[in-house]
């Protein structure tokens, strides 16, 4: 239990640092900006404390907002994702997900992929919608969401493979 907490804190700090120092400066073709920091919310233990997840994702978002001058957009998007996470689990892994031992940081199966993809698209859509804050930009928002989602999902899968614990 204690080591899980430590791993989560470590993940929180590391993902945030990578996001701020490297990925925030990326801007391919003027549209695509990846946000792999939400891996923290995706990889949070399935049966972990719900209030803990919500509070920590708020903290994650607000710190990123602090660094990217974006008001509260990241915080809102992270909160929405954290709140909808149980629903996404139900959708991707079936109703009785709470009794299975789901390990996300493992080989990518269709279920895991659909869970990651849905999480990323929900987060990105909320984020870009709030960032534009105007319905006349809705088309731009959708295009940006789709392009950035693809990119973030690819990055997330690469990172999961990189940090995957080795099988003995």
């Amino acid at each position: 239990m204690n080591s899980a907490l430590l791993v989560n804190i470590f993940r929180f700090v590391l993902l945030l640092a990578i996001q701020i120092i490297i990925f925030n400066n990326m801007n391919f073709l003027g549209y695509i900006s990846p946000f792999p920091y939400i891996l923290f919310i995706i990889l949070y233990p399935v049966n972990g404390n719900k209030s803990g997840l919500i509070a920590s994702s708020f903290l994650l978002g607000i710190i990123l907002d602090l660094f990217s001058n974006s008001g509260g957009t990241h915080a809102t998007a992270c909160l929405v994702l954290a709140y909808l996470r149980p629903l996404l689990f139900k959708f991707a892994f079936g109703l009785s997900y709470e009794y299975q031992t789901i390990k996300l940081n493992d080989v990518i199966t269709p279920q895991r992929f659909s869970f990651i993809f849905l999480s990323v698209i929900i987060h990105h859509f909320t984020l870009f919608l709030l960032e534009a804050f105007q319905l006349s930009y809705i088309l731009d928002t959708l295009v940006t969401t789709l392009l950035s989602t693809t990119f973030t999902v690819i990055l997330c899968i690469i990172i999961i493979y990189l940090i995957k614990p080795n099988r003995r």
Partner: peptide
């Protein structure tokens, strides 16, 4: 309840940051 409280805070920060000529609470 925690979710509603925090999303209230973050949404108000977002809206506040989009209104013109108002200093931001969350800035770098």
């Amino acid at each position: 309840i925690l979710f509603l409280l925090l999303i209230g805070i973050s949404l108000s920060l977002t809206i506040q940051s989009h209104s013109f000529h108002r200093s931001k609470v969350i800035s770098s």
